[in-house]
Amino acid sequence: MGSTEPKRTRRKDMLGLRGVSRAEITQILDTAARIRAVNRRRVKKVPTLRGRTVVSAFFENSTRTRMSFDLAAKRLSADVLGFSASSSSTRKGETLMDTARNIDAWRPDALIIRHPCAGAPHMLAKAFPWSVINAGDGIHEHPTQALLDMLTMRDHLGNLEGRRVAIVGDILHSRVARSNIFGLRTMGAQVVVAGPGTMCPKQLESLGVEVRHRIDEVVEDADVIMMLRIQRERLGRAMMTGVAEYAGLYGLDIDRLRRAHPEVLVMHPGPINRGVEMTPDVADGDRSVVLEQVSNGLAVRMALLYLLLGEEGGDARAS
């Protein structure tokens, strides 16, 4: 990182939004906004990454993010190799580094990795010359999710500066929340988080956010209400009291939505637990922009691949 030409992204990897500049986030969002046009044509393909190889390695279940990345690479004409933990040698006890060494033998241009451990993408990025894109590392970051969230917000709100974004749910264990907090703060937005004391401790203030413990305290001033998924099966012991109580204190229903700003955006990284984070009428209502998030996700991932690997974006291996 560190180029004398401000136009070109010289970064090798996209590991997280912490420390990424406002100028660079803006560049990625602008590129995504332009590249969207490809996805509206009849022939949804451009030759930008023809002959380049993109490997996607998902060590955690995910159908949609994975498909989104795969499709993004394919629309840019790259060759795509998919790799999922269940069918791979990790079952045979192969370490991540050894798996990566094997992948390296094919000389890929980029690896998209989702992994249950924070820092896994960083370990590979340090050791190998190809670009690494973090599709989610443990509870740490999920930068492309936050980028697509910010693009969606920007589409509706214009500018993110001074906007108030509320994030509700298990903030502590959410990589979506973390990346959004880093990115939104860089873009000048205010972030307020709400959740149970076990999932949303006051200590989160050290990230530069306000901390509340009831959704009612955050709906009224918010420009955006982002609801996070509660995954009961992934919570540790004694983290929450029950789905009914959770929905009562933290769920977004029509009555709460009515108290919010009439133009408020309702967002969710998906998939939605209907009746827990949101009632169906909110999820399907006219404030919800969840499906736009999905299509923006594809555009953001295309933009990132273009910026990291495309001719204009610079060759990460050049040296």
């Binding site: 924070a118 590392d137 443990g138 509870i139 970051e141 502590l172 050290s206 990230l207």
Partner: peptide, 11 residues
Amino acid sequence: EGAVALEVGLR
């Protein structure tokens, strides 16, 4: 468990 843990996403 502290501010650094929150930044780096480690338990």
